[in-house]
Design a protein around this nucleic acid. Structure first.
Lengths: 233, 233
DNA sequence: TCCTTGGCTCTTGTATACAAGAATATTGAC
DNA sequence: GTCAATATTCTTGTATACAAGAGCCAAGGA
């Protein structure tokens, strides 16, 4: 007999938050859109209470904004805010790489190399999605190899928040190929134990600079056009 | 006639959170201690609903831990977790300094210099509290001068969370004097526009390394002894 | 004496009820 | 016809009620 994974009650709390978070990150609920408590309660077949708790958590995560007695709206991040967040992401990942270079064990080195080869395979297959996921694993291995749990958590959280935009970047031209080459430099530095160089390499890999900046802003423009459509009805 | 600052209702929501946060950060509610909803509701003369919302926010901020159907407890950070958080703080502040070096305007330069002199005055007076506050301002000026709002917010949030431990460090021996000297190097690098050096200087200023690490662990031991006293009655 | 099992209590999670502030629509005056 | 003021409705914030899981205590057996 198959056991039910959770007491079902446990699901409720985080279920709502995860569902809403997903809807926001994927754009199902567009930036600027109002989050009405009763509608959501109706939609998820629960009362307003757990909905409110979910909204509060999303607000803490910075995904939505709750104004007193005025309800919640999905935060609309302007281009410069997104770039600012990538700047921080670059800093955090650089730090992770630096620490990973200093602290990684042999099994982590092997894992990193294996994942790097996996990236190569995905790149060769031409499957953008496959590369996306391999890329994600690559970065997460470095977070863990930093042996700093707090940093690991921070990186994961911010990375998740930036996920839609990372996806956007990967579409642009030969970004995947460039990305892989940059990964190579990161791997080299980490395995050599060169923290300074690892920091530098990963930071520049993540940062949105130069031509990538221009491309990114352009891609963002296309995204927001699509996004605003439903609101323009 | 003096106007009441808020419609009083607005206060309720954040009032509870701030009060609880303060109690936790100052140790009034000790790490590991249980946060009973009904007791808190009684204490603050409100119902459980707003208490729960406050607890949820504190959990999002990482100050407490809520386990499903098992209530909330104040998170007990072990020494290595605290050190890990300082490591991240150092990384973020280093990034802020790097960006500040590249982006600061003339009025920010002036502000930084003025604050640095204020630190000197506080140091001369021998008033540890005065130096503590001047020091805090100094760092916050750099956050702002990074011209990265997200980074600024992240720095402020983490800084607040680490406040009690920063205070602890400042007590140790001639830390204030060393601190001020390190500030000098940071100011120089930022004003010169040397991002690399500014990053390096501020990162090492914030990080807990070498002798400071030993001192810090020792100080932490004393703190937890005091903290656990009430629970040991 | 220690472990296990049963029931009891206590606390949390969710639903509902109610009050008060915001938004909106309507009506009146200019 | 437009603007303003007021009334109505709608939504949020808080309190309370109820259900169910978790922990605790006691009693019985090994």
């Amino acid at each position: 007999m198959v056991e039910i994974s959770e007491p079902l009650a446990l699901a409720t709390g985080s279920r709502l938050r995860d569902a809403l978070e997903s809807d926001i990150l994927t754009g199902v609920i567009a930036p600027g859109e109002r989050l009405d408590e009763v509608s959501l309660a109706h939609r998820f077949q629960v009362s307003r209470t757990p909905i409110r708790e979910a909204l509060l958590q999303l607000a803490s995560a910075g995904l939505i904004e709750i104004r007193h007695r005025r309800g919640a709206v999905v935060r609309d991040l302007g281009p410069q805010q997104i770039v600012a967040m990538f700047e921080v992401m670059a800093g955090l990942e650089g730090l992770a790489a630096r620490l990973a270079a200093q602290r990684h064990g042999p099994e982590e080195a092997a894992e990193l190399l294996a994942c790097h080869e996996g990236c190569l395979a995905a790149l060769g297959s031409g499957d953008t999605d496959a590369y996306y996921y391999a890329n994600e694993r690559f970065h997460q291995i470095i977070y863990r190899a930093s042996h700093n749990l707090f940093l690991n958590e921070q990186c994961l959280a911010l990375s998740r928040r930036l996920r839609p935009y990372r996806r956007l970047q990967l579409r642009a031209g030969d970004r995947a190929k460039t990305s892989f080459a940059e990964h190579g430099a990161v791997v080299d530095a980490i395995l050599r134990g060169d923290g300074e160089q690892a920091d530098h390499a990963l930071r520049n890999h993540v940062a949105i600079q130069g031509q990538r900046f221009t491309d990114f802003i352009k891609a963002l423009g296309g995204l927001s056009e699509r996004r605003y459509q439903p609101a323009a009805e």
